[in-house]
Design a protein around this nucleic acid. Structure first.
Lengths: 154, 154
DNA sequence: GAGTATTGTTCAGTGCACCGACGAAAACGA
DNA sequence: TCGTTTTCGTCGGTGCACTGAACAATACTC
């Protein structure tokens, strides 16, 4: 039986891409704050007071994962978590001063890292790169979260 | 402080892409065998008897991770692990019949899944997609594994 | 208003992915 | 040949990511 060529398997390429990014992040941005953690801080800068589930939706993490990420950020004093008095199910999230400061600091470094990461591509190619990845990811996410169920409910 | 636009952050896109793939894999290929596990099986079909470290290198996993993946595959009887009598440091790996059978079965499903995953792209776009991702990933891996050290040794 | 469904969070379990440190085996060098 | 260095595998620790189940609070419906 012939072995498959993994270099034409998008899943394998996606994993390698993500790992390469992980290494570069550690080297150039921060060893304390991870990329998903930064995504959470970034979301709360844009929309303070969001509940936990919505933050997870914004950054593309499921409920279990976002809970862990937030718990770590909260333990380190980068954000505050308060029960919504209007709806006792929700936890509302706000950055602390320290969290906002950290976000500011990392924003600069993140931009620098992205330059290095994308250095192999021309400006035009970067546009295409974003577009293609986004289209594939959006389509696959749509398969699992059908606005219109694939089979009409009976 | 303005929040960054994560849709132009390659790391964030890479993570989303990988997660989308993970979900599709579970739905269309297997809930037992993961994509990295398949990559290991695939490598051993092509090159039986490789040692553990080299397999990790082929599929892009570090020593700790490949050890865990192989331990799981071995526990499930999909591969055999034997100390190299020539070199007592190495573990040599071979697929079992069951492992080869599993690989054959999944190869078909994997191809089908890739079709669905890449459905949003035209044939030309798929070529570009592979090329761009590969170039970025290769370059970033090169940064950490410098053939020529970035700073000449003293 | 009481019973049922939905929603937000948490918990337990599995698996990937890294780092740094350790021990054993082999290769190298004086 | 005997020490030093390199290499392979393992172990412990941290963090991301999913599923499925449990629980509490709210919303819906009769």
């Amino acid at each position: 039986m012939a072995a498959a060529d993994l270099t034409t398997h998008p899943g394998h390429l996606a994993r390698r891409l993500q790992q390469a990014h992980y290494l570069l992040w550690n080297a150039m941005v921060s060893e304390e704050i991870t990329s998903p953690q930064f995504a959470v801080l970034n979301t709360l800068v844009a929309e303070p007071g969001l509940d936990q589930r919505t933050v997870g939706e914004r950054v593309g993490l499921d409920r279990s994962t976002i809970a862990e990420v937030i718990s770590r950020l909260s333990r380190r004093g980068l954000l505050d978590k308060v029960r919504d008095p209007q709806d006792g199910r929700r936890s509302l999230l706000h950055l602390t001063d320290e969290g906002a400061r950290t976000h500011r600091r990392l924003t600069v470094r993140t931009a620098r890292m992205n330059q290095v990461f994308l250095a192999p591509l021309t400006a035009d190619e970067r546009t295409v790169f974003f577009d293609l990845i986004r289209r594939v990811a959006d389509a696959a996410e749509g398969l699992r979260n059908p606005e219109e169920p694939l089979v009409a409910p009976h």
